[in-house]
Write a protein that binds this DNA or RNA. Structure first.
Length: 273
DNA sequence: TTGTGTTTTATTGCCTCC
DNA sequence: GGAGGCAATAAAACACAA
């Protein structure tokens, strides 16, 4: 964007006379030349803007030649550029008007197109093209926004994942140290019997899965008992070995305010399994 | 002034809908 | 088959740094 224009939506146009001020905003480039000739604007589209004919809507040699007038067009007159397709930007007023209309409804019914064209002294085809391009711009911006939001969502999820990982490691160490503590202590026979890992020492391996971490209230488990498969450790509801808090549920933690509507983005309609 | 990047206007070809 | 939409693209207009 180094060389980009600052105010994209407000093209800087100067009337041929260069008078400045309010009148400038009403200057319609070529309006008297291209658009308001002997034909009405609607007729002009019929003549030049027929999509199926696909001839250039304006800037045809005859049009420019017969239409050249003071100011900038004088430069065209008499030079060999009569055949060139000179693009003229819409005036600030026209753009503003079209923008407002676009905000109301970004699609054009034929009647509204004709109305706008008459109002602005443009060809209906020009109005249609402007709306088409405007929709394309809108879509691009929307995609940029969505991209940013997705990035933010990813960051949030990643942060949450990392913290879960840390939490899991922490809990694992906690369990290990408590295990060692119990094994090291002289404990009663009953306690020893209640320790199924006795005689088959196991290294706790892997991480607690989210399901394991959150399964204390699942249907397959006693509500007061969690079995850690990796260590064979059974911890009771009142036991010292109960973690001070369970693993956070995935859906609890991340703050991802980004929301997709699957209708808007059908191919982003995915979910965790 | 000039080179370069961005924005805007317009065309073309294809697709869908009625 | 015509009308309108969209994607891709061309090219003019414009902004800005060097």
């Amino acid at each position: 964007m180094a060389g980009g224009r600052a105010g994209a939506s407000a093209p800087k146009m100067e009337a041929p006379g260069g008078t400045g001020g309010l009148l400038d905003s009403h200057w319609v480039p070529d309006s008297s030349t291209m658009f308001n000739g002997s034909n009405s604007t609607t007729d002009v589209e019929g003549q030049f803007g027929d999509r199926k004919t696909r001839s250039p809507a304006f800037f045809q040699a005859g049009e420019i030649g017969s239409a050249a007038h003071e100011g900038e067009d004088m430069e065209l007159e008499g030079c060999s550029q009569l055949l060139s397709r000179k693009k003229r930007r819409l005036s600030a007023h026209q753009v503003q008007f079209l923008e407002k209309s676009f905000e109301v409804e970004n699609r054009l019914e034929p009647e509204r197109k004709t109305e706008l064209a008459k109002e602005l002294g443009l060809q209906p085809r020009q109005v249609a093209i402007w709306f088409q391009n405007r929709r394309a711009r809108f879509k691009t911006k929307q995609m940029e926004k969505d991209y940013d939001s997705l990035g933010a969502c990813y960051d949030a999820l990643k942060a949450n994942y990392d913290s879960l990982l840390k939490e899991s490691e922490k809990l694992k160490h906690e369990v290990d140290s408590l295990k060692r503590k119990l094994l090291g202590d002289g404990c009663s026979e009953e306690t020893r019997k209640a320790r199924p890992w006795d005689g088959e020492p196991q290294e706790s391996s892997g991480h607690l899965t989210a399901e394991q971490g959150n399964s204390s209230q699942g249907p397959d488990h006693d509500s007061s008992e969690i079995e850690d498969d990796s260590s064979g450790l059974v911890v009771g509801g009142d036991s010292l070995l109960v973690a001070p808090h369970g693993l956070p549920k995935i859906e609890d933690g991340y703050d991802c305010s980004f929301e997709f509507s699957s209708e808007d983005h059908p191919f982003w309609n995915w979910s965790y399994n």
